[in-house]
Design a protein around this nucleic acid. Structure first.
Length: 911
RNA sequence: GCGGAGGUUGCCGAGUCAGGUCAAAGGCGGCAGACUCAAGAUCUGCCUCUGUAGGGAUUCGCCGGUUCGAAUCCGGCCCUCCGCACCA
């Protein structure tokens, strides 16, 4: 499996790979992570449940590893920690996968055969694949496998509480939730546009669209304006209806098939393709006959509102497959139209309508400025939209902001039946099986109306009172609260819970997963029972219906809920901010009492692979299973912990894997040897090491409280390894030093490398599991700070000696250190207080000059008495030190800045 | 455009909230030395420039300001990345 750390060293004793599976079994057998209410303070941590359409990748692994490291840390600090995981099966993608497998689609079959092969014996693969024609089988297969993967990662999860979003007891809760929201007046119906596949007869999502994940498709609202001719009208489309006052002509593509369509009893012309699409938005618009481009080109047309008469010109660049396939031309404000005029030899006189920053905005100028037609066009569009004003003389909209003018003209034209909306995709899109994607309009779409001001106010209150890591996301979230409007909450297909108000709809998959963490608190108690609304009201809202005696399981569910709820920390990825997390927060504030509102959110950064963004289409997704198989869970977790803080980008790459893997092997070997060591440490270097360790441990704790996992583990791993290097230079033996700190070190390390630490814990003869060990309250001793600052002082002397040696080229026989005496010290203090009444006047200028270097805190005598030997060992030469004598010494030491003399020796000829 | 984050010494990446102890952690990489027949691994030192005594000069996107003192505070500018929806 793995040969990359086996080959790394030849003489090093190879530490055998920890049998992680064995330890996981033992945790599970002993119910180490099953959490039940008790007298301790609780800590409830969650991660959004994984979607069960396939195996997990490194990104999931990271988020869950972060959550687990925090969960384990909190246990260490004495909290009763609940970390549950369920599975999300709602939504359309799983069904789509089954469809494709049923249809025998090659790509999907290969992909899923591949996925299954990672878990199964060769001859079982096809058998399992065949069952995937049932969506439920896909979901349950991957739910099981994901659970296995998580277990293999060493996650400290209470699996008793796991459930799936398609389980009946949970669906009952979703129904309860929606009836409750409905009774609060938050559920509405209305008009809604969706991306739609006419071939499949279904709305399509990002996952259904070819390249949908990398090249997003959005919906643009064209306005198709009717230009009245003698026999019929033309529907000419634009995103900029406010420019009707600047129209000079119409563009028509001669090579295109045009048709007549009936609109409100009027005969209107549009491209044949357009007629096909508009049916999805206006089913009443029926094709009534063919129409030739020639016919269109021969007519004269009237611009609505202005009444001006214009002509249509031929232009083969007009795309018949965009909106109505006829375009109105505004050469004053469209660089494209301006160019077309030149190309086709029409002398179009631009009419200017818009000021930007008090200056007339002209397509001509934009073209000169940007050079490229397309760039100039889109720059002009943005500029005019965001900072443009209509010129004062224009009727109806004179002086208005362009964005407001656009709304006004659009609404007016539509009201007067002189235009209709033509929704179009932002780019040409196909589904993954090649059917076209168009825009359809649903008239009776169900919504959750998030606009209600009191609801938003409550959510703002929640956001302000909770913890965000990193904190800047709080502001981000407040903006999202302002921005959220209505959310389509049901769809016509996919797995999930039927909408209780109208079971022909299925509740949309993000909307069914907003308050589900509450269900973790009771799922193991209620089992397969389907609770009534009444019982949910009692458990979650403490709302007792008159005279009802609830069964025991309801009573104990209520107790569990009130002990555990409020989610203390939710770890999730950044893209969830404006969808899942806002619904999560809003639904909690709508349903629960304040004390049960969420208390913390940590936003995990993106995971990239070898410096590149991970995407399905690039095929650079790394499977979590592969990683754990190859490197083991502990190494993966260490990588996650040490390579970046939770909220920054994590790059998963081979080079860093190797570096960390090497460090990890060294660390394991060191600890193994230390665990076997029987020798007691004695000597100053060991007490220095112990003092430094206590300080590292204190810093570790304070970093972990902030979830700065990276800093915490640099402090508790790398810093200690560096300390050991110092220790060795001072003549100490690392194993002996380490053996004295294992009792506290192993628990701290166990959050990231639980398997190895659990094994060592046992080897150390400890009872119980390090995984639920409660770390002693320990304190950094006063002495520790003193020792560490002394060490810093001594190290400064060492580097000063080196520097003098380097600069002078002298290689001395010995070193003399003269430290500041009590009376000079008192004088220095006086001088620093601006009291210049001191005996030695030359001290004044010295002190003022090197103010920054003076350290009044350090006890130099203490340091030299204990650590002078260390200087000798490090420099490899004898040292003498004494206190300054005013009569005999030429140079004067300052506090924290001793005089160093190199004694004897020769000048290095090389210099 | 709106909103958010960021630009640090060869590279990655801390430090910026709480200004001095910051020529600036750590890692990678490079150079030199120790060990070794050799290579690798490991260890030690060095890696802005400069200096025959621990010093000096110039650096933290650019320009200006506040301050005895700015990578850190304030103002302006340039550049990069992310989100802007009904998709899990």
């Amino acid at each position: 499996m793995d040969n990359n750390h086996c080959s790394s060293s030849t003489h090093n004793i190879k530490v055998k790979m920890t049998n992680e599976k064995k330890l996981q079994d033992s945790w599970s057998k002993n119910r180490v992570f099953q959490a039940n209410p008790d007298e301790r303070e609780k800590f409830f941590i969650t991660v959004p449940w994984p979607y069960t359409s396939g195996p997990l990748h490194v990104g999931h692994g990271r988020t869950f590893a972060i959550a687990d490291i925090i969960a384990r840390y909190k246990r260490l600090r004495g909290y009763n920690v609940l970390f549950p995981i369920g599975f999300h099966e709602s939504g359309t993608p799983i069904g789509a996968i089954s469809d494709k497998i049923r249809k025998g689609e090659r790509k999907t079959l290969d992909l899923y055969r591949n996925y299954i092969s990672a878990y199964e014996e060769k001859n079982n693969v096809n058998k399992i694949l065949e069952t995937f024609v049932e969506p439920d089988k896909v979901a349950s297969y991957f739910a099981d496998k994901i659970k296995e993967d998580f277990t293999r990662m060493g996650l400290s999860v209470d699996w008793r509480r796991s459930f799936r979003s398609t389980d009946l007891p949970y669906k009952r809760m979703v129904e309860w939730q929606f009836r409750l929201l409905d009774s609060q007046g938050k559920i509405k119906r209305g008009r809604h546009t969706v991306l739609f596949s006419p071939d499949d007869g279904n709305p399509v999502g990002e996952d259904d669209i070819d390249d949908g994940d990398t090249n997003k498709v959005s919906i643009e609202d064209f306005v198709s304006v009717l230009f009245k001719g003698e026999k019929f009208s033309l529907a000419a489309s634009s995103l900029r209806p406010e420019t009707v006052f600047g129209i000079t002509n119409l563009w028509v593509n001669e090579a295109t098939e045009y048709v007549f369509v009936d609109f409100e009893g009027k005969k209107i012309a549009m491209s044949e393709k357009a007629a096909g699409k508009i049916k999805l938005q206006h089913p009443e618009m029926i094709v009534t006959g063919k129409c030739s481009a020639k016919e269109i080109l021969s007519g004269e047309y009237t611009i609505p509102i202005t009444g001006k008469k214009i002509h249509a010109y031929a232009n083969e660049h007009i795309d018949p497959d965009q909106a109505s396939g006829i375009v109105f031309s505004v050469p004053g404000h469209s660089v494209r139209d301006l160019q077309f005029g030149k190309i086709f030899g029409h002398d179009l006189v631009p009419i200017y309508l818009i000021n930007v920053d008090g200056k007339l905005s002209k397509a001509d100028d934009a073209l000169k400025k940007h050079g490229d037609v397309e760039v100039a066009n889109s720059e002009l569009y943005k500029e005019e939209f965001y900072s443009g004003y209509m010129l004062e003389h224009i009727p109806l909209i004179g002086g208005m902001k362009v964005s407001d003018a656009r709304e006004k003209i659009k609404n007016m034209l539509i009201e007067e039946k002189n235009a209709f909306l033509f929704h179009e995709t932002s780019r040409k899109a196909k589904t993954r099986n090649g059917s076209p994607v168009h825009v359809a309009v649903f008239d009776n779409q169900w919504f959750i109306d998030y606009l209600e001001p009191e609801w938003k106010a409550a959510t703002r209150e929640a956001v302000n009172s909770m913890r965000f890591t990193p904190d800047f996301y709080r502001k981000n979230m407040l903006d999202i609260v302002d921005w959220i409007s209505v959310r389509a909450c049901a769809r016509k297909r996919g797995l999930g819970t039927p909408l209780p108000m109208d079971p022909s709809w299925v509740i949309e998959s993000l909307s069914d997963s907003t308050i589900y963490p509450a269900f973790y608190t009771i799922s193991h108690i209620i089992g397969n029972r389907e609770l009534s609304d009444d019982e949910f009201n009692y458990i979650f809202l403490q709302d007792r219906a008159n005279g009802i005696v609830y069964p025991d399981y309801v009573e104990s569910a209520k107790k569990e809920f009130s002990y555990w709820y409020g989610v203390d920390e939710r770890i999730t990825a950044q893209p969830h901010l404006s969808n899942h997390l806002i619904f999560y927060l809003m639904n909690h504030t709508a349903i629960f009492r304040k004390k049960y509102w969420p208390k913390g959110i940590t936003i995990a950064g993106t995971v990239i692979s070898n410096g590149a963004k991970i995407s399905k289409s690039k095929g650079n997704a790394v499977s979590l299973l592969d990683i754990v198989n190859t490197h083991g869970a502990d190494l993966f977790r260490l990588y996650v912990a040490v390579n970046s803080d939770p909220w920054s980008t994590l790059d998963w790459n081979q080079k860093d894997v190797e570096i960390i893997s090497k460090k990890y092997e060294e660390l394991k070997e060191l600890i193994m040897n230390a665990a076997n060591n029987a020798e007691k440490p004695s000597g100053i270097h060991y007490s220095i090491f112990a003092s430094r360790f206590r300080i590292h441990l204190r810093n570790f704790n304070s970093e972990m409280e902030r979830y700065s996992i990276r800093n915490a583990y640099i402090e508790i791993i790398y810093e200690i390894i560096n300390d050991l290097a110092d220790l060795r230079n001072m003549g100490g033996v690392p194993e002996i030093a380490v053996s004295s700190i294992l009792e506290n070190w192993i628990p701290a390390l166990s959050c990231v490398m639980p398997h190895f630490c659990e094994e060592i814990w046992k080897k150390m003869g400890k009872n119980g599991f390090v995984s639920n060990y409660e770390m002693n309250k320990f304190e950094v001793m006063q002495e520790d700070e003193k020792i560490v600052s002394s060490l810093k002082y001594v190290k400064n002397i060492i580097s000063d000696v080196r520097e003098i040696r380097k600069v002078t080229g002298i290689i001395p026989n010995s070193i003399e250190v003269i430290i500041c005496g009590e009376s000079e010290r008192a004088d220095v203090e006086k001088i620093l207080r601006k009291d210049f009444n001191v005996g030695d006047k030359k001290l004044i200028s010295m002190v003022m000059k090197s103010r920054g270097k003076i350290d009044l805190e350090i006890d130099e005598k203490y340091a030299m008495e204990r650590m002078a030997k260390l200087i000798e060992t490090s420099l490899g030469m004898p040292l003498e030190w004494r206190v300054y004598d005013r009569i005999g010494d030429r140079k004067t030491p300052l506090p924290g800045k001793p005089v160093i003399n190199l004694i004897g020796g020769v000048k290095n000829a090389d210099r």
